[in-house]
């Protein structure tokens, strides 16, 4: 049970039940789909840039608790950041889940996802929205797939 509590922390369950920025953005926005064919998780990430700043970011779709909470917390953490800061956060978050050493520096609340490391098949769930954001930041339009 202790590993499970590490994975399904209160903050993750809270964002799963009440995802933040769970809406569609209209107008001049970048829109990229992320899809995990293994489990059917599918999100659309909307990104509105103002110059170099992430003016607004939101998402829609459906997925497991980990992927939904991760998408929700991602939107909160990159809003108002510069493009470079958002990219840096993506790299750090990705490293948190996949590199041999745990480093939560600069990740703030996102550090709760460190528990996912113990569940290798769930890493894709936690990173799906981030990969999708990464693609949107680069101005790509094609669907991001975890496979």
């Amino acid at each position: 049970m202790s590993d499970l509590r590490e994975l399904y922390q209160e903050v993750i369950l809270d964002h799963h039940k009440k995802p933040r920025n769970f809406r569609r953005l209209e107008g001049d926005v970048r829109r990229v789909e992320g899809y995990n064919p293994l489990c059917g998780d599918r999100f659309t990430v909307y990104l509105q840039m103002e110059g170099d700043i992430v003016k607004d970011v939101a998402f829609e779709g459906s997925g497991c608790a980990i992927s939904t909470a991760s998408a929700s917390m991602m939107t909160e953490s990159v809003k108002g950041k510069t493009r470079a800061e958002a990219e840096d956060m993506f790299q750090k978050f990705h490293a948190l889940l996949t590199s041999p050493q745990i480093d939560t520096t600069g990740l703030g609340k996102l550090a709760v996802f460190a528990g996912v490391r113990e569940f290798p098949v769930r890493v894709k769930c936690a990173t799906l929205a981030w990969h999708t954001l990464h693609s949107a930041l680069q101005g790509k339009e094609e669907t991001v797939s975890t496979e």
Binding site: D3, L4, C39, G40, G63, C64, A65, I66
Partner: peptide, 20 residues
């Protein structure tokens, strides 16, 4: 509860089911 979450929690108890 998404099936994928169900599968992970069952797996922690040694229970193998398919999800997807």
């Amino acid at each position: 509860v998404h099936p994928h979450d169900v599968g992970t929690i069952l797996d922690q108890q040694g229970i193998a089911v398919r999800t997807g």
